[in-house]
Design a protein around this nucleic acid. Structure first.
Lengths: 200, 200
DNA sequence: GGTGCTGTTGTACGCATGGACAACAAAGGT
DNA sequence: ACCTTTGTTGTCCATGCGTACAACAGCACC
């Protein structure tokens, strides 16, 4: 049997990506080192060569998922209304399954809770920025963007649960409710945002 | 060692309650039959006398948690405004930790997902009723109570995550945002609901 | 072409888990 | 008093887990 060698960098990356996929599929608690190894196609002993413990691997995976999401946030869209509309309608399923699992784990894992809180605050700030710019561009009114951002993120989280977990919403309904809520927060004319959703 | 005997009914109840508490504390996946037995103070073999499997015990525990919550829903309050305001501000921490854990588990457990969806729809209907009555009593306007209920439950779920998991909100902030959102949904004068919160 | 270095494998160990079951102990009927 | 029923215990087993580690294989450098 000839073994296939990879650079340490590539292999680490491969393992982390496999871990993220498996967490989304099976949940933090159910992900096994043997699972991850099988997903990549290596012996499970190899993981110990890159990560001192299972916990370290999962922490790296979560960290990576956060970084991924934050990095791909700015969709390189200039129009503030389009940016906000896209933000309201972009709820990536895989990521949300990871977040919801992290929510469930957070009360027992202070480190994860801290990371989760930091991630949330970053998204909150991003959302506040989107709201500010969209408000100015759309002729709306927004006394307290930070408060509005809190309300929008709460709504989006709740809608994501209804969409991805409870499945009591269709994607279209999700988008309609989210956009309507954002329009109401900014006192925009109904439909302003709905018409701005990028066609892509 | 003299063993302490209990009626089958009482013992079952005791085991289910212990399971609920442990799920809230450690999460579905991490709850062990030995854990539950230790919590109650019996040998772990006893559980098999009451439940055919671990899965059956946890299912019974979740079912019981749902029943508990639905049973104690009507807070025996007549005033519709007070009832709605109480509903917006009552977010029991223990229960929500169980729900969030169930959300995380649902994508892998179709039976749990079904139960969760049924529970959600029941709450949605309850919320729609509250909104209808409060709207009439408070002189608001509500074209589509079902849609408004969907939006309120989504917001409450999102806020519960921010309060209990992320801990980026104080209970007061939670209540303020929730009440303001409900007022906006019904086009009530700001403060109408906030003043109605039962003093208890 | 030997010689380290490093990625990789396979096996082994200790441990915790869910489940199975035989033995035991407390009531309750007769 | 005996015996049946039923709640309860302790022990055993197969399995799967995270971790540890010795041996192996590809690769670069001298």
């Amino acid at each position: 049997m000839t073994v296939s060698r990879k650079s340490a960098e590539d292999r680490r990356e491969e393992l982390v990506r496999a871990a993220i996929a498996l967490v989304a599929r099976k949940g933090f608690a159910a992900v096994t080192l043997r699972d991850v190894a099988a997903e990549v196609g290596v012996a499970h002993g190899l993981i110990r060569h890159y990560f001192p413990s299972r916990e370290a691997l999962l922490a790296a995976a979560f960290d990576r998922a956060v970084r991924d999401e934050l990095a791909q946030l700015p969709p390189t869209v200039d129009d503030p209304l389009v940016a906000l509309a896209d933000w309201c309608t972009s709820s990536v399923e895989v990521h949300y399954l990871v977040w919801i699992d992290a929510w469930a784990e957070a009360p027992r894992d202070p480190e994860l809770a801290t990371a989760l809180r930091a991630h949330h605050l970053a998204l909150d700030q991003h959302t506040a920025g989107l709201l500010r710019r969209a408000c100015a561009a759309g002729g709306g009114r927004c006394d307290d963007p930070d408060d509005a951002a809190r309300q929008l993120t709460a709504m989006l989280d709740g809608l994501a649960v209804q969409l991805h977990v409870l499945r009591v919403l269709t994607p279209d309904e999700h988008d309609r409710v989210a956009l309507a809520h954002a329009e109401r927060l900014l006192a925009l004319r109904p439909g302003t945002l709905a018409r701005a959703v990028s066609s892509g």
